[in-house]
Nucleic acid binder design. Sequence first.
DNA 1: CCGGACTCCTGTGCGC
DNA 2: TGCGCACAGGAGTCCG
Length: 297
Amino acid sequence: MPELPEVECVRRSLEPLLAGARVLRAELLRPDIVTGPARARDLLQGTEAVALRRHGKQLAILGRPGRRGGPAPRDREARVLLVHLGMTGQLMLLPAGASPERPGHVHARWRVRRPDGTEHLLVFRDPRRFGGLWTFRSVAELEVRWSGLGPDALELSARDLSTALAGTTRAVKAALLDQRVAAGIGNIYADESLHLAGIHPAARSDRLRAGQVRALARAIPAVLRRSIRAGGTTRRDYTDGLGRAGRAGRRLAVYGRAGAPCLSCGTCLRESTVAQRTTVHCPLCQPLRARGPAGPG
DNA sequence: CCGGACTCCTGTGCGC
DNA sequence: TGCGCACAGGAGTCCG
């Protein structure tokens, strides 16, 4: 369930506490969640966390080699740990000695010491294991991976979106869920963005009018930013890196509201399946066929 | 090559 | 009341 806003809230909550912290120990409890080299060093042990970066739904912790102790040449390299939360993933920072509220399904943990001397435990838990960790030896390697994704959905331009949609016959919602079109949109914010833009989720991507594409390109970042400001959407499990639930769920216009009245027009919201995903839209605000004088025919 | 379908995984909630 | 099944979905893979 974590989509771009939730991952960004995790990033913002953790970065001030992790930046400058020394990773004293990395423990991998379930090796099969890692892709790439998975020794302690690859999991940032011995490095200093310098920054948390996000692209779409992916969160990277950048580790810089320590200066003390004359490390072996191999260990003077930078390390990058990429975290994908999947559906039920959580990355949480706890005071050292504390145990997670729900300790089950903790797959990795890190003991860190901040510059002020306090020690904390960073925990990755993911019951459903749709998420995971990826390790890289450099920021350049991370960027190679990220180059396979489209532009971050917060930075999406009308031009980029227009090009991507013009080249596919898929339903527009299917295109929005494709991380190569825009990185960071999942089922919740696809439905929310399409509702705000007044576009039917099943409309063919390449048949949208220019005005619809522009409206969608405006709606996507607007919906995401509003959710970030409210701390993200918590439906069940999601919390930020300090265990705080988000308040954006109560602002959702369509997701999870099938059968309820549209907040704009009062029409009963309709549930369907698009791109194998539960989809909710307003039949009046989001007509499949364009209305008005600008329409084709 | 494109797009749709299937798969992984487990907690939750509903229906019988 | 309790059991069992359907459902939730990000993203990789497979197949037509």
